Computed example of a mutant assay.
Amino acid sequence: MAEHRVAVVTGASRGIGRAIATSLAAAGQAVVVGYAGNEVAAKQVVDEITAAGGQAVAAQADVADEDAVAALFDTATRTFGGVDVVVNSAGRMALSPIAELDLDDLDAMHRTNIRGTFVVAREAARRLRPGGAVVLLSTSVVGLQFPGYGGYAASKGAVEAMTLVLARELRGRDITVNAVAPGPTATDLFLEGKDEATIEHLAKQPPLERLGTPADIAAVVAFLAGPGGRWVNGQVVRANGGII
């Protein structure tokens, strides 16, 4: 395992991705803060990490663009010397009953969630150093079957399939591949468009009777990406407070 670990985190300018980036930095990893378009927010994450004594740099990339993703990894190698951890937190969510889902929305969502995850995972498989870790983000709605989440759950089901296959394809490389599947988590992406009654109802679903926080999810990712998670491989961890 590399002495100084370097992490690439996509979707790191806000929400769960931001919490993951700051959590990995707090654990001593140098972090490439990947973002799609919000440069100001990404630079705020970098400033937060560096102010706390960590190392970070922001880099823009559309995760579905293989050239942009290759450049993202190049930034990590050029700035910090290599890549040990890859977390793909970039994602898109469009909610609608299957019968009413606009196919342009479906295509955009699948471009980011399926193709984007595949492109990032492919680059990780090509570049990660021994002792590395890949963590992909799924969702607990793959197993919960909430109405309105058909297109989104389908895209994340593909992520889980990729996770299990890639873990086995990297046999002999000393690289772990896992997915984390959050339940309802209090992010802007989740809260957008929901009224208070809906949010309260979802918060009561887990036995712990609250929504998850980005920090809850980041802690699981940091475990899988750190020394304590080395014996966890080819798994989907449903971080959802016990919601069923």
Rank of each mutant, 00 (worst) to 15 (best):
V119A: 04
G212F: 14
W231K: 14
R238Q: 11
A27S: 14
I20C: 01
A125W: 13
I217P: 00
V134A: 08
G151V: 03
M162H: 03
S23G: 15
A41D: 11
D65I: 04
V9I: 05
E48L: 11
A125S: 10
E196H: 14
L24A: 03
E169Y: 15
G183I: 02
A52G: 10
I199F: 09
A222C: 13
L128A: 12
K194I: 01
V177S: 06
L24F: 04
Q29I: 07
Q29P: 12
T163I: 08
D105H: 10
S13P: 07
V159A: 03
G15K: 04
V40H: 15
L72M: 02
K156C: 06
A19F: 08
V45K: 04
F223A: 13
A154E: 10
K194H: 04
G132M: 07
A42K: 04
V86M: 02
A124V: 08
F80E: 06
P206E: 11
G34Q: 07
A203S: 12
W231R: 09
R126E: 10
A42W: 00
P182R: 00
A133N: 12
T75S: 13
D47N: 14
L136Y: 03
T139Y: 00
V221W: 13
A71W: 00
D65A: 08
E48D: 12
A2C: 13
V9H: 06
P227K: 13
A76P: 10
A90P: 01
D65N: 08
I243G: 14
V159S: 13
K194V: 05
V119R: 01
R122E: 01
T10Q: 00
D65T: 01
A124K: 06
W231A: 15
V180C: 12
A121M: 02
A68C: 04
R78K: 15
A239C: 06
P147I: 00
M109D: 05
G28P: 03
V46G: 06
G131M: 06
V165W: 13
V119E: 02
G15R: 12
A222F: 09
N240W: 14
G193W: 12
S96H: 15
E3K: 15
A124C: 00
Q205C: 09
F80M: 02
T163G: 03
T213G: 08
G81M: 00
G81N: 04
A7V: 00
A153W: 04
L103M: 14
N233G: 14
V6Y: 03
R5P: 01
Y149H: 10
A51C: 11
E48C: 03
R173H: 10
